[in-house]
Every structure is written in C-alpha cells, then in structure tokens.
Amino acid sequence: MRPAEVIPQPAAFAVDRVLGWAAGCGVLVGIALLPQLLPGYLNLGIALLVLVGWATAWDVLGGWTGQVSLGHAAFVGLGAYTLGLGANTYRMPPWVSAPVAVLLAVGLAWAWGRVTFRLRGPYFTLSTIAVAEILRLGAINERWLTGGGEGIFVRELARPLGLDLFDRHVQYYWALLYAACAVALVAYLAPRRFGYQMRAVREDEEAAQAAGVDPVAVKLRAFMLSAGLVAFGGVLYGAYLSALVPHALFDLRLSVQIALTAIIGGRGTVWGPAVGAVLIVLAAELFRNLFASANLLIYGLLIVLVVLFAPRGIVGQWERWRVRRRYARSVAGR
C-alpha cells in the first residue's frame, strides 16, 4: 500500500470547484445576454431552449420512469393548436389558453396512459407511435376544428403585461424561463419521494410493487407531468411558428427528435436532456450547409453511437465515470 501519494488533495479539489462555479456562472450570463451579444442567433437560441424544455419533460416519463414514448409530438401539437385556435376562434388570451392547453394535455395523457400502460417496454413504445399517428390524422382530417392539412395562422395574440408575444426577444426569454423551470422541476423531484418511486418503477415494476409503490399510478403521474410540460412548450412554439400545420407539429419525426435528444444526452439525469439538446442543435447548425434538409442524419448517427458506446447517454456515462473514479480514490486512500 502506498497511501501517501494517492490521497486526494483538498486544495486542488477546491480550485476545481471554484473553476466549475465560475464557468457555470459565465454560461448563465452568456445565455441571459445572448439576444444582445449574438442577435443573429436568436431563432436558434429559441429553438434550442424549447428543445431543452421538451427533452427534459420527455425524460420525466422516458428516462426517470423508463417508459420510452415516441408520441410526444401530440402534446406539442395540442399546445400550439390550443393557442392558435383559442386566439383565432374564441378570442382567448394566451394566459388563458396556456393553462387550458396544459390541462388538455394532462387529461389526454391520463386517458392515453390508462389504456396503454398495461403494455411494457417496446410494446408501449409502439403503442405511443400508433396513438400519436391517429391524432395526427385527426388533425389533418377534422377541418372544421384544425383547418386541415393547410393548418391555421395565428394572426394576433393579446399582450400579457404589454409584451408582444410575436417578438423574438420576448419569445427567447419565455423559452429560457420554460427550459429553466423544466430542469429545475426535475432537479427538485429527483431526490424526493416521487423521484425514487419513478426510478423504482423503471428498474423493476414487480419489486416496486412489493415495496408498496403502485407502478401504474406512478407511470400515470409521470406521463401527465411530462405531457403538461411539453404542451406548455407547445404553446410557446405555436407563438414562435405562428403558422401551424399538422405535418410539422404532430409529426412522428418531432417525437423522435424529442426522445432521441434526451436519450443521447442521458436518460434519467437532470442535465442530460439539456446537454443533448445543446450538442445536437449546435452540431446541426455546424453542418447545416452540408446536410441541408437531411437534418435528422445527426440524430441517427449519434443515437447509434450512444447505444453502442455510451448506453447511459453522455451525461449518464460521465456521471458513472465520476462515481467510479471517486470510488477508486476512496478505496485507494483507505
């Protein structure tokens, strides 16, 4: 045993932490000031933050509770269409249509989950695709409600607190608030009772049941929470797009994007979905000219690489590496 040389050095560790905090604060200031610093990247910033929110919300069900859904675009569409139809048809101000959208999504998730949560693993995933596709076909065919395949155009929105919701700056901070709330909510839930219940259900439903956790109730609550959060992001996305078409909003490809973002970043981690979103959006921007409209190529390549070489996702793998290193040090230092 050679204890003297491997004992961790507290001083160096503290420097690490200070540097970490400084970097974190720098990133936060950068994010908050992006509209001023890089006005040309405002649209990219909004898209990125909305994806962070969606992926984080998806992860409540897909990562923490382990129920991989490929149908979450339905909630995006529901949110966006509630905003658009509310404003156009019923003169509903956005601060009313947003809660309505969230409630509708929660209700839809409840009914959807009641029916399909008896399916497990890949079968549940297949059922989510089917439900979302049926809803998409509904959005295309029920012209009286949704305007059909051509969709609807959000002409005007009431101004909450005098803010113009079509203004990209307002949308940016709205999206920032949304993404931050989603991540904060997950960070809040993770170490609490519900967080442990979700993980217990993910790891082993029978064992969870034996320990007094009702798996169906936990899955339903996770689905409702996830759906409500995604729908709120959908409301925001509706204002961002303002031209709402079912092909973009209810599309399987959008569901796949949301799910893969979270999985690539790291399922069941607080920061994984956000990291995944940043990585993918930046990579897509970098290769935009090269790949043009084949934008899902990056998702495909990354997910194959992640499944093969980092099955826990980027953040998950990093956390595991850190835990192992800490353990190795503690063992070596004893």
Partner: peptide, 19 residues
C-alpha cells in the same frame, strides 16, 4: 443489451438511411 437498445439502434439506422 436491454431490449429498447436494439429498438433505438434500428431507429438510428432508419434515420441515417432515409437522410
């Protein structure tokens, strides 16, 4: 590997092929 990893891998292959 767990069953959903082959599902995700083939989904990735699908995206790569179509794009």
């Amino acid at each position: 590997a767990p069953p959903d990893s082959t599902l995700l891998a083939t989904l990735g292959i699908a995206l790569v092929v179509s794009n």
